[in-house]
Design a protein around this nucleic acid. Sequence first.
DNA 1: CGCAACATTTTACAAATGTTAAAAAATGAA
DNA 2: TTCATTTTTTAACATTTGTAAAATGTTGCG
Lengths: 187, 187
Amino acid sequence: MIEQLRNIAVFSSLSEESLRELSNCMECIQYPKGTTIIRADKVEPYFYVLQSGIARAYSDGENQQITFWFGQSGDVLFSFNSYINNRPGYENIELLANSALIRIKLTDLFLLYQQNLEIANWGRKIAEQELIATERRLIDRAFKGAAERYRDFTAQSPELIKKVALKHIASYLGVTQVTLSRIRAAH
Amino acid sequence: MIEQLRNIAVFSSLSEESLRELSNCMECIQYPKGTTIIRADKVEPYFYVLQSGIARAYSDGENQQITFWFGQSGDVLFSFNSYINNRPGYENIELLANSALIRIKLTDLFLLYQQNLEIANWGRKIAEQELIATERRLIDRAFKGAAERYRDFTAQSPELIKKVALKHIASYLGVTQVTLSRIRAAH
DNA sequence: CGCAACATTTTACAAATGTTAAAAAATGAA
DNA sequence: TTCATTTTTTAACATTTGTAAAATGTTGCG
């Protein structure tokens, strides 16, 4: 188990001992494509790491559904508002492929944060990495047009382009599906 | 000093002892309106807390300057990329009013993160709060029109509307100044 | 296969926002 | 105050993006 975890980037910096403590709270689970693992308006009690598969987070609006995150192998996956504020979140997360996940109960994880300095700093770095990625997206929206964001996305996530419906990619990029089609047509 | 810190929300959760350790690394400084305290393309060696005053973070584009953050009393203020990755950042931060700040050298802060469990968790929560605020803005851009974002901004930050140039607020909201004027004209 | 369900593209038109330039208003310094 | 500078608004027009609906393409199942 512990050797297997070493191959997952998010765990690679942890010492043998911390990794063992963390692994005591872990479960491996597998879900089929189409499973919704996190629902808006519920407090989600687990923190997940996606070992294999694809996930997307979205929120429902009046007449639209906005995708604002995609996850791939190695990515961490959690309801921000459940994890941070212990409140129901605004995101649904569904699996777009059969997926293998590791999950950790938040109550266990928070206990570790209060007991283990290395794990507390590990949790800090997870939040920091998510933060810098999110802010980068906000700034990219200001400086780059939709066509450039689409090119960047295809360059950085070629597997997602193949496997994810374009309507989801369109809302992730902040445009309608019609606009994305126009971008793609302009080869 | 320590009593003074207790009144600043970001420090309020810390124990007497941790607060003393942290305060050993602190300096109070004052800068006049107009000072640029953090520059893009420099590694910024300090973490700041704004005791009083107003700050804005912006990035320079080809022919535009995009404001993506405002800070007020009690807000933390740091170059994300310096703090998280020890690399030059993409943001400039300038003061829009005479301001009093507390600063902590990052090298000292990182040492504390490796020594003090409570401070490590304090740093984790700071990143988490910034994360959830940033993600909320990204989602708001998808679900709300520019007029609604402007109304929300005026409701949540009435002091900023009074004191910050509208051109900065326009770019913060993701529209041109002309569009913001039109929104305001439609009372 | 052949159909049904769903995804993607295309078209025509509407609405929102951007661009540029100029006018009006506000600000700050002498 | 007065002048110069900067900010904000307004106007006219161009461009982008959105909306709705139809056409085309794709997928999976009986």
